[in-house]
């Protein structure tokens, strides 16, 4: 077996493995490298096989008799296209309890102002991982007001197209949560490319960590995007945004568009 055949075999093995569980950082890096070398292979090559196999096993499983409970079905129905209805809270985020937590004089005025001018959903679509995208302005405000180790940096454009972009990134290592805001970002075509957030944690990781991908559908308003790190972050030092293929990449070879803080992160993205 020559070198190319061996590499392709490893690539197939990693692709098959990635379809059933998350890869280690080293395996992810190796996979990214091999996909660059052999672009005829795609990251999702085994996704269809595993998805169909999952259904196959469901059909073969005589104990798979569960019916979706009607109360859960109704909750799901209510979430469709009714974003700001107070009744439609998703599990884990209760509007009433949030208000009780926040009714302190320092917060009350800001909540009143935001409600008065109208909370709106971020006009974005993005791939969410752990977080759901509802009530982002409030969630961001909660983080700002409760995180003791909050980092807050403005974005700096690294190319002429991005010099006028306004926004900030906030992040808490303790809470492993963060949000970015952006105004004036160019709209992307999600079938061609997506923006990707990177988190620089030089103590823990050799390479910046994937913070999630997102699309921009408007340049007119401020958008809020949650940061979704793929790995635990111990000490975030900087953040960056690049434009990648749909779904993002593990290791970027694209130019930096925005960084926060201003100076270039020490790691190579």
């Amino acid at each position: 077996m020559d070198k190319k055949d061996k590499e392709k075999q490893i690539l197939m093995e990693l692709l098959a493995l990635s379809a059933v569980e998350h890869l280690s950082v080293e395996d992810e890096q190796q996979l990214a490298q091999l996909l660059l070398q052999y672009p005829e292979y795609k990251k999702d090559d085994f996704a269809k096989t595993t998805a169909l196999s999952q259904i196959g096993f469901y059909l073969m499983d005589d104990t798979a008799n569960e019916t979706l409970p009607s109360e859960i079905r109704n909750k799901i129905l209510e979430t469709y296209d009714s974003p700001l209805d107070e009744k439609n809270t998703l599990p884990g985020f209760n509007f009433t309890s949030l208000f009780k937590t926040l009714i302190k004089p320092a917060y009350a005025w800001s909540i009143t102002v935001m409600l008065a001018i109208g909370l709106s959903y971020s006009m974005i679509t993005f791939k969410t991982y752990e977080n759901n995208y509802r009530y982002l302005p409030l969630k961001r405000m909660v983080l700002k007001n409760t995180a003791k180790d909050l980092m807050n940096h403005p974005w700096y454009g690294k190319t002429s197209d991005f010099e006028t972009i306004q926004g900030h990134v906030i992040w808490s290592n303790d809470k492993q949560r963060g949000f970015i805001t952006l105004t004036g970002m160019p709209i992307n075509d999600s079938s061609l490319n997506q923006y990707q957030i990177w988190i620089v944690d030089p103590i823990k990781y050799l390479n910046p960590v994937d913070g999630g991908v997102f699309d921009i559908t408007t340049s007119e308003k401020e958008v809020i995007i949650p940061i979704n790190p793929k790995l635990p972050i111990s000490n975030a030092r900087a953040f960056a945004i690049t434009l990648e293929q749909p779904g993002g990449v593990v290791v970027s070879s694209q130019p930096l568009l925005l960084t926060a803080p201003k100076e270039r992160p020490k790691q190579k993205i």
């Binding site: 909750k75 799901i76 979430t79 998703l90 884990g92 969410t128 759901n132």
Partner: peptide, 12 residues
């Protein structure tokens, strides 16, 4: 329950 809600939102 959380997962299935997230899945249908993602599908949407």
């Amino acid at each position: 329950e959380d997962a299935i809600q997230e899945i249908f939102v993602a599908l949407w």
